[in-house]
Design a protein around this nucleic acid. Sequence first.
DNA 1: AATGAATGAGCTTTCATTCAT
DNA 2: CATGAATGAAAGCTCATTCAT
Lengths: 201, 201, 201, 201
Amino acid sequence: MSPRRRHAHSADVRAHLMDAALRVFARKGYDGASVRDIAAEAGLTAPLLYHYFPSKKALLQALFERSGALVMSAFAQAAAVPDPRERLAALLWISARIVREHQDFWRVSYGVRFQRAVLDDLAVGVAAQSALFVQLFTALFTELGQPAPQVRARTLFATLDGLFQHYVLDPDGYPLDDVISHVIAQALSPPQPPPLSPPAE
Amino acid sequence: MSPRRRHAHSADVRAHLMDAALRVFARKGYDGASVRDIAAEAGLTAPLLYHYFPSKKALLQALFERSGALVMSAFAQAAAVPDPRERLAALLWISARIVREHQDFWRVSYGVRFQRAVLDDLAVGVAAQSALFVQLFTALFTELGQPAPQVRARTLFATLDGLFQHYVLDPDGYPLDDVISHVIAQALSPPQPPPLSPPAE
Amino acid sequence: MSPRRRHAHSADVRAHLMDAALRVFARKGYDGASVRDIAAEAGLTAPLLYHYFPSKKALLQALFERSGALVMSAFAQAAAVPDPRERLAALLWISARIVREHQDFWRVSYGVRFQRAVLDDLAVGVAAQSALFVQLFTALFTELGQPAPQVRARTLFATLDGLFQHYVLDPDGYPLDDVISHVIAQALSPPQPPPLSPPAE
Amino acid sequence: MSPRRRHAHSADVRAHLMDAALRVFARKGYDGASVRDIAAEAGLTAPLLYHYFPSKKALLQALFERSGALVMSAFAQAAAVPDPRERLAALLWISARIVREHQDFWRVSYGVRFQRAVLDDLAVGVAAQSALFVQLFTALFTELGQPAPQVRARTLFATLDGLFQHYVLDPDGYPLDDVISHVIAQALSPPQPPPLSPPAE
DNA sequence: AATGAATGAGCTTTCATTCAT
DNA sequence: CATGAATGAAAGCTCATTCAT
């Protein structure tokens, strides 16, 4: 009834479409979701979708950017914790919270992780985040005086990645908090000498 | 011994097709790989592929069965090591070797992990392997007298899963052996009390 | 009145496609007619056909529904004739007219009559029409005081069915009116005792 | 073990294949039946089928020829009955018996009746049989002194054709003998003046 | 006589995307 | 802003038929 724009802000429609896309991608996978599906989920038509996003891929990219920003800001916050032990815990708990609260996105993200054709344009951002993560934790372990801080960082990253995948695959049955607690304890434990070298093949 | 044949043995052609499919699936993803692509990679035509496999999905399933058998036999071997610490190390080194030697398969496997529609018929086998893995390591940690053996097992499983994915995503740049060594050391280290509980939200 | 439109009304295109499909089905049979054939006959492309009909089968079904409605309304009209003898004649002449004016449809209809796989979804409507026909004529013969009215009705139905098929198979050479006249006369003639029983086998 | 031919006479295999084809055609229709289906039903392979029949169509043609011969000989027998009334009854009962005993063939025959592409090579034989039937009954009605004998013959032919189709579509529920009895009585009844001419359109 | 292997042609259907209105 | 119409490309799959053995 207001004389100004009957229709929502462009940004609102974009967000609405991204939410719809997220749901459909999460449900059917990126390839399995048709542009029509997404438009229908958002309550509009495909050509209109193209009014807001130049392609299906661009929609996915927008989802990655939105979540990337979210992750970055959360991490920046936690990275500011002065005590390194507390910082590590904060980073992990925050990661867990993000994944729990954005399960759909992570399902999508893990689902396209191995699709080169799809990831082409995302690869840079994703790789950057991974690198940042490893750097952050390498610094942290260095600060803690742990040996081989980069290996520790990589291991921790792998653990988190695997763990979040397992959680997202079965959110109701997975003891996320227990495992996170254990991971934190493990990450802060003193180093051990490697007990066995790789067997000669 | 075997004379030159114009018509290869059925089993040979099947294996040849599976290898081709593996390469194409690894390169383009399951959805991105067309039956024609696979047939062409194998040097034959699409209808002939259907002579050997009833469907594209069946081809994928055959790949999973082949690798599943391989994993199982390797695991059975390592699971027979009497000393639990050595057994743990053996299981991890063997896992790493399998992944290294069958990168394409694991790329494919991780690629379809979140595609419900595709996994339907594979789900049983895959879930069984995961369960077996967790069981095996739960028993192992119990044997070692570690507390919370199931959480440890789950964590270890997550670590391996994430680690192998990171390796497969960048096989040349990833220090697989170093990380595996560290994971083994970590898994065998004595437990620590959890330093921090999850923050109240 | 209506301005020149680049995009025709959906209903028009649907009708246009149905006409094209009817011609192609009549010419090549249901199985022999490809969706491309039909689209080409209608002057458009196959994917566009799917814009208007969800499947090839749905197209056939639409044809049956259209003709079913036509038959029903024509029959309802003739069934209202009060005098039973005149009613019988009216029903038969109307049937003949419908078949003559919709030869293509009846060719198609008779062509799929024995294709279980195709008829599945049409079966209900077709069976209902047959049953209606027999009921209508059973009532009519009862009203006329003829013995064994149901057998007479079934016989008449069979005669019409066969006769229309023969006509449709050779529309130019078939003396449709003569035969219909005779059938009417025959149907209204008084009953005769059966002259001979079936021979013992 | 007998030194002479391990394998059946060529004619036997042909007959065996024709029986198999008949069953499969009856079950799935001509188009719906694949050559592999037929070969499998006969317990052999497709290329071997091609050893006995040059094409799928030729198989169908052979079926028509076999049944045509059967019909002809049965008709020839019944046509020899001296009394025309008895002859008519004999012809109809024999027709009914043939259809009852060869339901599969008639199902197939009626199923392809409107498929020009399939019938091309059968058309001659089928048309000849129809013509023979009409001639035979025209002569018979002439002999009986009935007016318009050709129209009567055509009508009778239509009745039989329709009736046999209805029977074949529902063999268990159809009162074939009752209807045949009625048709015979009707065919032998004296003529009636046509009660109503076709309405002016 | 018998068969596994092989293929060209073609099927129905889906999709991302564009265009005219 | 919004949409129905439109399409080229390609998908998975089936088939009648042939060929080498």
